[in-house]
């Protein structure tokens, strides 16, 4: 860089950022020098994960499965392909498995090792999904953890906890709320929350959006 005369500030230097920020800058500059990354594409990638990929994608999948029995069948048989039909796929969405909530079974997803999560359908994971208490406790005492999320299940209902990993990521197909007969997919989508697709929530009741 050519050193150029600058404005006449009082400050002689720029306060360095925190150690971890410097480490990230070190990684970025080295990868850039070795031409292993394209710095211009980084911001676009961040923008995608901050604004464009999120649980609305998964909600679209769920709403379609509720509306179209054949699609639901395909979704349960080969989730990756069925989700790709709607245009969603890519990193952390390569190998998907959809688990269906029923009157008898409630499914909930965790990654006990780190934070494996289906990015293309749900975006990046919420804070609590990455926290140690959730990762350990949902396996040990799923019903109490679900109660903390406001989900109280009948004792007669079985709870299945699925551990996401590098090979497989899960999406919960929540039960369709009652009194939604004849609703369009667009209407149904509004009932599908992120937590309902992780299993730490249920789909909203019909009355919530009318």
């Amino acid at each position: 860089m050519k050193h150029t005369p600058t404005d006449y500030h009082d400050h002689e230097h720029t306060e360095p950022p925190s150690d971890i920020e410097l480490r990230v800058k070190a990684l970025e500059s080295i990868l850039q020098e070795k031409q292993l990354i394209d710095p211009a594409a980084l911001d676009a990638l961040i923008d995608i994960y901050e604004h464009k990929v999120g649980p609305r994608n998964g909600a679209q999948v769920v709403a379609k499965a509720w509306s179209d029995p054949q699609y639901k069948q395909r979704l349960l048989q080969d989730a990756t392909a069925a989700i790709a039909e709607l245009g969603f796929g890519g990193v952390q969405g390569e190998d998907m498995l959809v688990v269906e909530n029923t009157a008898a079974v409630h499914n909930v997803v965790v990654c006990t090792l780190c934070s494996c999560y289906p990015w293309p359908t749900l975006g990046l994971p919420p804070i609590w999904y990455k926290s140690a208490p959730y990762r350990s406790r949902i396996v040990i005492e799923p019903r109490s953890v679900l109660a903390e999320f406001g989900v109280t299940l009948a004792p007669s209902k079985e709870v299945r906890v699925w551990d996401s990993n590098a090979e497989l990521r899960y999406l919960v197909l929540p039960e369709r709320p009652v009194d939604t007969e004849g609703w369009s997919e667009a209407q149904l989508m509004k009932l599908v929350t992120r937590n309902a697709m992780i299993g730490t929530g249920l789909a909203l009741p019909a009355g919530d959006i009318r």
Binding site: P17, S18, I20, E21, V24, L27, E28, L31, L36, I37, D38, A41, L42, D43, L45, I46, Y49, E50, V91, L124
Partner: peptide, 13 residues
């Protein structure tokens, strides 16, 4: 910085 290190990882992947 959190977004940056995330993006670096995904791009390299």
């Amino acid at each position: 910085w959190q977004a940056n290190v995330f993006a670096l990882t995904v791009q390299l992947f």
